[in-house]
Design a protein around this nucleic acid. Structure first.
Lengths: 216, 216
DNA sequence: ATCAGCATGGGGTATTCACCCCATATAAAT
DNA sequence: ATTTATATGGGGTGAATACCCCATGCTGAT
């Protein structure tokens, strides 16, 4: 029994390349292609594929959204993300959306095939660089470990200020605690935010908790 | 530069087989073998391997314990579990112990090599059936779905608003998301703060993370 | 029928925040 | 010796926040 596959990518050339690559394998049959999320949803309904190979960058809506919608309507279909994105955010969101695999486009063809086969068997293939992120998440969300490192470019003073910021103190309170001017606290806060690419105290709190700088 | 590998398994035959299998590859060099956890620890200290292939069932103590001890002393070495066990408990414990990969003994030789190479590059290879378990853990520990427990006096709507607040969104963004006026968002926020006796968005974020309403 | 709770919003105000400008002093790095 | 990074602070601006006032519907329980 061949795995019935639906290709979703907005570039026809990419789809053709994948078709060439995958149809050489005996156990994969490409039953359809889609260039947009809407087409993907329609094709999923029509063709009932076993596995969908899903790009994230689609013209109408993201492959993440498309995955979420397809999985909501057809939970049985396994969806493998094939994308240029290798950052944690897309990866985790794709998992939450229900993906059964995540493969960067730079991966070797065999890895894509492994992912498709794993998905067809109800299992999950994660590219090693992605698996690493998930394990890291697993470890930090485990109450066992102590988060010693992972503190970026922050100076000692900035780190100290961040601790107070994350506790919910305002500039004046922090200034009093550190015996400096509120203006200096504000300055440190600006530098911290710039370094970490955060833009509000709420985000600072989350960051600090995630990094184990303070306890929730 | 070849990957310097240490084999740990209590069966000499298995070690020999692995040696045959792996030394055929150009990029792997087996620099030692160990049949017990104690030998493994000693060899790790002596040989400073890049990667250790670790069985879990060892005569003196478990490969999980051995992994934990080796990682404590030599954090740089990457340890790949190669075992007959495919249940969640061993798998998760091995991850907590610091493993960079998990491969069942029934896996194909190429998968073992993939795992070794990933580990040598600081990444993580998880066999698909194991990756599935980790993703499932990720999803259940995700507070994205309705966290109906542990929520005190908050109404459904307030709880919904709190979720967005804790994500760091401002009133306008939340209003857009919930299709209500920013003024209503502000009203809900006031009620939430009053009910919980909190007085800033930063405190709301902490509260939400502590209660598991959002993930840090 | 009334009342409490909930969700919805409009107004206002003082404070804080986020983000710019600027400067000075010290210490480490080149 | 000059640059670079760090820590310190002052000024200013527009936006957002935290906290009040008020009101209108709608539900469900008494």
């Amino acid at each position: 029994m061949k795995t019935r596959l639906l290709l979703v990518d907005d570039h026809a050339v990419v789809r053709s390349g994948l078709r060439m690559l995958l149809e050489n394998e005996g156990d994969v049959e490409i039953i359809g292609e889609a260039g947009t999320a809407a087409e993907a949803l329609a094709s999923a309904a029509d063709l009932k594929p076993d596995v969908i190979l899903m790009d994230i960058g689609l013209p109408d809506k993201s492959g993440i959204e498309a995955t979420r919608e397809i999985k909501a309507q057809f939970p049985a279909v396994a969806i493998v993300a094939l994308t240029i994105h290798e950052d944690e955010e897309y990866f985790f969101k794709m998992l939450e959306a229900g993906a059964s695999g995540y493969v960067p486009k730079r991966a070797a063809p065999e890895e894509l095939l492994t992912a498709i086969r794993a998905a067809a068997h109800g299992e999950v293939y994660l590219y090693p660089s992605m698996a690493k992120l998930l394990v890291r998440d697993f470890l930090v969300s485990e109450p066992t470990d102590k988060n010693l490192s992972s503190r970026k470019d922050l100076t000692d003073r900035e780190h100290e200020v961040l601790t107070h910021l994350a506790e919910g103190e305002n500039n004046e309170e922090i200034a009093k605690a550190l015996v400096i001017s509120p203006k200096t606290v504000a300055r440190h806060r600006e530098n911290i935010m710039h370094k970490l690419n955060l833009h509000s105290r709420a985000e600072l709190v989350r960051y600090a908790i995630r990094k184990g700088i303070i306890k929730a």
